[in-house]
Simulated scan of single mutants.
Amino acid sequence: MAASVSLKLMIDEKTNRVVAAEAEKDFVDILFSFLTFPMGTIIRLTSHEQLKIPVTIGCMNNLYRSIQNSLLNWHTELCKTMVLNPRNPCAIYCSKLKINIDDSGSEMNYACSRQGCRYLSKYQNVSCVCSKGVTTKEMKSDDSGSSVESCRYGGAFLQKGSIMFLITEDLQIRPASPHILAQLLSGFGLSETSGIREMPVEVSKEQVL
Rank of each mutant, 00 (worst) to 15 (best):
M1A: 09
A2W: 09
A3P: 09
S6A: 12
L9F: 08
D12S: 07
K14A: 14
T15H: 05
R17C: 14
V19P: 09
A20R: 00
A20F: 04
A21G: 13
E22K: 09
E22C: 07
E24A: 06
D26L: 00
F27I: 03
D29Y: 06
D29T: 05
I30G: 05
F32D: 12
F32R: 06
F37W: 14
F37Q: 07
M39H: 03
G40T: 05
H48E: 13
H48D: 15
L51S: 03
I53C: 02
P54A: 01
V55R: 08
G58R: 01
M60A: 12
N61W: 07
N61P: 09
Y64E: 12
Y64C: 01
Y64I: 03
I67S: 03
S70W: 01
S70I: 05
L71W: 00
L71A: 08
T76S: 15
K80T: 14
M82D: 08
M82T: 14
M82N: 03
V83P: 04
P86G: 01
R87Y: 05
P89I: 12
P89D: 11
Y93C: 01
C94W: 00
K96N: 15
K96R: 14
K96E: 13
N100Q: 10
I101R: 07
D102A: 02
D103V: 15
S104P: 02
E107P: 00
E107H: 14
M108Q: 11
Y110D: 09
C112P: 10
Q115C: 02
G116R: 07
C117N: 07
L120R: 08
S121G: 03
K122G: 14
Y123K: 08
Q124V: 11
V126Y: 00
C128M: 05
S131P: 00
G133C: 07
V134E: 10
T136E: 14
M139C: 11
M139D: 02
D142K: 01
D142W: 10
S144C: 12
S144T: 14
S146P: 00
S147G: 10
S147Q: 13
R152Y: 09
G154I: 04
G155V: 09
G155N: 11
G155S: 13
A156W: 06
L158D: 14
Q159R: 06
K160D: 15
K160W: 09
K160L: 12
G161P: 12
S162M: 13
L166K: 11
T168C: 10
E169H: 00
I173W: 00
A176L: 06
P178Y: 06
P178S: 10
H179I: 12
A182I: 07
A182H: 12
Q183C: 14
L184C: 03
L185C: 09
F188H: 15
L190E: 11
T193S: 08
T193C: 09
S194Q: 08
S194D: 11
R197E: 11
E198T: 10
E198Y: 13
P200L: 05
P200C: 10
V201A: 10
V203G: 01
V203W: 04
K205Y: 08
E206A: 03
Q207A: 06
